[in-house]
């Protein structure tokens, strides 16, 4: 059966108004899933339906795009842009604004990433520099330790040499004492000889001309005794000089030995600073370099993790 077209049209339009109102109310409340279903019997009702559904499709598309594009930007997925295609007018203008905001966010994120990269690079450089320095300090410390030990050995040898020198000079003093003793003896002999020569001269004078030759001999003997005495004086003077020199040498050698002993203490101090002492807290230069390296490693790890 067939109804009259205008009656059908009016009924269909009434139905369309009811359906469109219902769908618009749902859309107003944020339900963008609703669409106007098929309305048969009216060309005008069908056109209203397509128009309303088209409006909802565009609002739906805009809402989905703005939510998804913003979420993507927040997650750092800046390659996902707002799809403006298929959206016109105010939709497009708002979409372009969102795109612009996302680009600003993208630049900020890139700057943060650059800063983080720069920090990482700095951490790498610091670590590498400290590693180099601590290796060099360790090498220098080993070298210094070796030198200090060498110096200590040298000082021990020098002290031993100086002590041997002291012994030699002391024995020189003993020898000169013996010389002095011998010269004293010679002086006594010379004095007695002089006395003997004097007696001989007196006896020669008493003998008169017969003793003349004997007097000449006695005079010669006196002269020899005088010469011997003079030579002895000379020797004594030389021996005194030797003894004074030996005393000076002993003083100098003792001073040198003391200086070397003081130097040994200083060298020992250097060796301790380099290698560490006997106490646990007395860490040496090598261990300090290792501690520095470990601390910087820890610092750098923290920076890399942040």
């Amino acid at each position: 059966m067939k109804a009259r077209p205008e009656t059908v049209d009016a009924a269909a339009l009434d139905e369309a108004v009811r359906l469109v109102t219902e769908v618009c109310e749902r859309a107003c409340n944020g339900d963008l899933e609703a669409r106007v279903p098929v309305i048969s019997g009216s060309e005008r009702a069908a056109r209203i339906r397509i128009a309303i559904n088209g409006l909802l499709d565009h609002v739906d598309a805009f809402v989905r795009e703005s939510g998804a594009a913003s979420a993507a930007a927040a997650e750092g997925r800046f390659h996902r842009r707002f799809l403006t295609q298929g959206l016109d007018g105010a939709y497009r203008a708002a979409a372009e604004q969102i795109t612009h905001s996302n680009q600003v966010m993208s630049r900020t994120a890139a700057q943060f990433a650059d800063a983080a990269r720069a920090r990482q690079a700095l951490a790498d450089e610091l670590e590498s520099a400290v590693l180099t320095v601590s290796e060099q300090v360790a090498t220098a410390a080993t070298e210094m330790g070796r030198s200090a030990n060498g110096l200590a050995d040298f000082a021990r040898v020098a002290v031993a040499d100086a002590e041997r020198g002291l012994g030699t000079v002391s024995s020189l003093r003993t020898s000169s004492d013996e010389i002095r003793h011998a010269v004293d003896l010679i002086n006594q002999v010379a004095a007695q000889t002089r006395l003997l020569a004097l007696n001989a001269t007196i006896e020669a004078a008493r003998a008169g001309s017969a003793g003349r030759g004997f007097g000449v001999v006695a005079n010669e003997v006196k002269n020899l005794a005088n010469e011997t005495s003079a030579s002895s004086e000379e020797i004594m003077s030389q021996v005194n000089t030797v003894q004074q020199s030996a005393a000076d040498a002993i003083g100098v050698l003792e001073a040198v030995t003391n200086r070397i002993r003081e130097m040994s203490v200083l060298v020992e101090g250097i060796a301790q600073a380099v290698d560490g002492g006997h106490q646990i807290e007395d860490v040496g230069l090598s261990q300090l370099a290792e501690v520095l390296r470990a601390e910087v490693s820890r610092f750098v790890s923290t920076i890399r993790a942040s």
Binding site: E33, D57, H58, A61, G86
Partner: peptide
């Protein structure tokens, strides 16, 4: 068309 959207649910 570039200004058209195909929509399905």
């Amino acid at each position: 068309g570039a200004d058209e959207l195909i929509v399905t649910k």
